[in-house]
Design a protein around this nucleic acid. Sequence first.
DNA 1: GTGGTCTAGACCACC
DNA 2: GTGGTCTAGACCACG
Lengths: 128, 128, 128, 128
Amino acid sequence: MNISFNTRDPVYLQVVRHFKLSIAKGILTAGEEIPSRRELASQLKINPNTVQRAYREMEEQKLIKTERNVPSKVTTDAHILQGVREELLHESISNFLDEVEPLQLPLDEIVSRIQLQIHRKGESASDD
Amino acid sequence: MNISFNTRDPVYLQVVRHFKLSIAKGILTAGEEIPSRRELASQLKINPNTVQRAYREMEEQKLIKTERNVPSKVTTDAHILQGVREELLHESISNFLDEVEPLQLPLDEIVSRIQLQIHRKGESASDD
Amino acid sequence: MNISFNTRDPVYLQVVRHFKLSIAKGILTAGEEIPSRRELASQLKINPNTVQRAYREMEEQKLIKTERNVPSKVTTDAHILQGVREELLHESISNFLDEVEPLQLPLDEIVSRIQLQIHRKGESASDD
Amino acid sequence: MNISFNTRDPVYLQVVRHFKLSIAKGILTAGEEIPSRRELASQLKINPNTVQRAYREMEEQKLIKTERNVPSKVTTDAHILQGVREELLHESISNFLDEVEPLQLPLDEIVSRIQLQIHRKGESASDD
DNA sequence: GTGGTCTAGACCACC
DNA sequence: GTGGTCTAGACCACG
């Protein structure tokens, strides 16, 4: 009997992920300015260096473009922006499959369960 | 701009989840004895009260059966055991849909992407 | 009349450069272990985080390979190692040309001056 | 494992170097007036004493000629002015050789690399 | 011990 | 004000 505990993603990666979600959802669009390091840090009540770490990460992934003395901006490279959606989808599916695989269910049953839950979700949503 | 950070599950729920996974995977079977509170606490290097809390939770969910002076045992109620699988599956699908919904993809594309990734996973697994 | 002052390279980049030089000189070889963050920081009397920053940079440039709980190692990728020499040479030449270009000298004179200085250097070295 | 960090030149030497560059580039010519101590200090937002130190240095190197109550002037001694070019060139080559020497490359390869990079530089410059 | 994250706060160059 | 570097020191997971 062995257990491995949940390990929380580093905060800076959570920040990166949040930006990726915003991009995938269309909340952030190409070329749009993002908050300054200090401002976001203040909003999120985290350390500016942690935000800086997140922004550096996004810079390296070419998600944002940063120049000295001006606010960083979302990339205008449509290819990269599209890649974000792909990446998020792939990651979600991957996590899902990792969780579901040990249950040893045939694919068609998994799919039909998904369809079922989407259907129910749609209903409860229309209840609101 | 708003963010909500990952929050680690309480340890006792992580323990419960681990037992559920063991049951769903068939590692733990109906009627099988599970470690004593003290023993598990010692193994996991956590507080015995935390284990006790986890066991109480499982007791309430009828997952285990506890009698005085004998080791607790996994329930023999097949219905309950099957329910564990259902619950885990439902939870995984629910998480998955929550993540994927904002991407606004049609169901059939999601399904085909799942099939694709299963296929690839199978290939890379057979590479080992 | 305008002046721009020398701006010192960030310390972490100087550390990176030092490793690149060591590699180019053959002092560090493929797969060799490098000092731990704390150890190097202590030796150089700089902050461990600054060393960490340098090591991350090298990691991203695939110069070193780092795994958890074991000392980082120089990459074994010969292609990358060779690239280090190229990069250093290119950088040195580039700096040199930037300095020399405003002097408006013909290439052959530059070359002959270089040969002259190499020659003199060789003589004074053999004087030691 | 040993490292020596970049150390920024004293400001007064940076000022001197800037004048030398201006002379070598022909921006400053023989006999031309240079700014007063106070004026340059104000422009560069540095201490007038620092400028004074720089001018003293240039005076000692006979680069400028200072008389009471009139602006200092660049020397008219062609020999000295030519020497500035020599000095800068010699220094650049010296730095270059110091950097390149540990790479242990034959001279002809260094030269051919220089020619290559000049060629490329010319191309990209004509792209502008 | 190892590598890695995070904070708090100072400092810098640029405009 | 902006982005960026650096320090000092705490904390974590892993083995």
